[in-house]
Design a protein around this nucleic acid. Structure first.
Lengths: 209, 209
DNA sequence: GGGGCATTCATAACGGTGTTGCAATATGCT
DNA sequence: AGCATATTGCAACACCGTTATGAATGCCCC
């Protein structure tokens, strides 16, 4: 019927790999489809037939980064110390982000800036989110966290803390003269401790109305 | 000597104001210097003589946003309940970010992506950071936080938590089926509580080695 | 075996961006 | 009036993502 396809799966992977390398060390805006196609000795048409658009390409990259992220977090095996597991997940979180800053940036980039109607992105996020929620839930059963709050709420606070501190560092907005790395673990510990003792009135801490 | 200047301070403010409006509701990438100049009935040269570049313009916008942010946080008056002050600063933090998402985004955008050699940006950050550190310091004196840690470390953890949760919401990466707003304050409270009780070994929370 | 044809792809064009060189302009001084 | 010069608007440059076009290609059928 027609000529042989060269825009095949192999090319798709080659382009994805090259794009990942560029994004990895220079970010998404430094990724040019023209340059990418030229480097791979093909044309921009390839990118558009394989990925639809630059957003589509970045979305594929997102899937890849999310998978790696989930894998990394999954290396933290549950122990009989769930609260410790939460800390360890936080440390793994930080380690991945620092090791792959641009992939991490793709994962947490503004979602409204991506191609819309991509409804399975939350699914990926939830996937990496689950081990943390599980650890919290086990911690509640073990009495290490207050039983009042939903485990999702506690997990979200840990996620937020990790994401916040990591983001401050990666974006270069950490307060000067302060090594964020050093206080990352201590902050997580304080938070975990707080969720154990919170939910009941604290002396000297008046309610905010 | 030459013709009358029209690229003057008034034009500078007009451009800055228009640019702020655009960035405010459509973000920095939606801001086009050509469009901006056309709207202001001038040429792109004006932007370059007044701001040097788009990065320069965004930097001026950064100063403005930082000033507003610092003002907002400064509305939280110190009380005799420093720990409560910390919570209130966190809530003010969130309020500003949610009310001005794109300005907040400018404040915490990747610093390496901005024009370099701008060394007074950390100064602005520190300015908004100080009230929080002060509240923590007063809290330590009042015995509301453990005395072991530097107040900067505790303040940074609060900052990180607020920034993290806010960023997750603004970027659309909050876990589904979970209202982050509802657990923002509770997370802050848990963290503050934790910094009071932390620094001493916690039963059932083994050390991570 | 050779022509028609559908498919696949590379090239080039389109509209947009930030940025910069250059020529026109408009003033104050001689 | 004429000159010097600071100032400005316009057009060109080098990119970008995206899309239309047309040429190359290999299969089917006669």
């Amino acid at each position: 019927m027609a000529r042989l396809k060269t825009h095949d799966e192999a090319l798709r992977l080659r382009l994805l790999h090259r794009a990942a390398a560029t994004v990895f060390d220079r970010g998404t805006t430094a990724l040019s489809l023209r340059q990418l196609a030229a480097d791979a000795k093909t044309s921009t048409t390839a990118v558009y037939s394989l990925f639809g658009s630059k957003a589509g390409l970045l979305n594929s990259l997102y899937q890849e980064a999310a998978h790696l992220f989930a894998q990394r977090l999954a290396t933290v095996r549950p122990t009989d110390d769930p609260a410790g597991d939460v800390i360890r997940i936080g440390l793994a979180y930080r380690e991945y982000a620092v090791a792959n800053p641009h992939l991490y940036a793709i994962l947490f980039a503004d979602r409204s800036a991506q191609c819309p109607s991509d409804s399975d992105r939350p699914r990926e996020v939830v996937e990496t989110y689950r081990p943390l929620v599980d650890a919290v839930r086990r911690g509640q059963l073990a009495g290490q966290f207050g039983p009042t709050s939903d485990p999702e709420v506690i997990a979200l606070s840990v996620w937020g803390m990790a994401h916040g501190l990591v983001s401050l560092v990666l974006s270069g907005n950490e307060p000067p003269e302060l090594a964020v790395a050093d206080c990352f673990e201590r902050s997580l510990r304080a938070l975990v401790t707080g969720w154990r003792d919170s939910e009941e009135p604290v002396a000297g801490l008046a309610q905010v109305t």
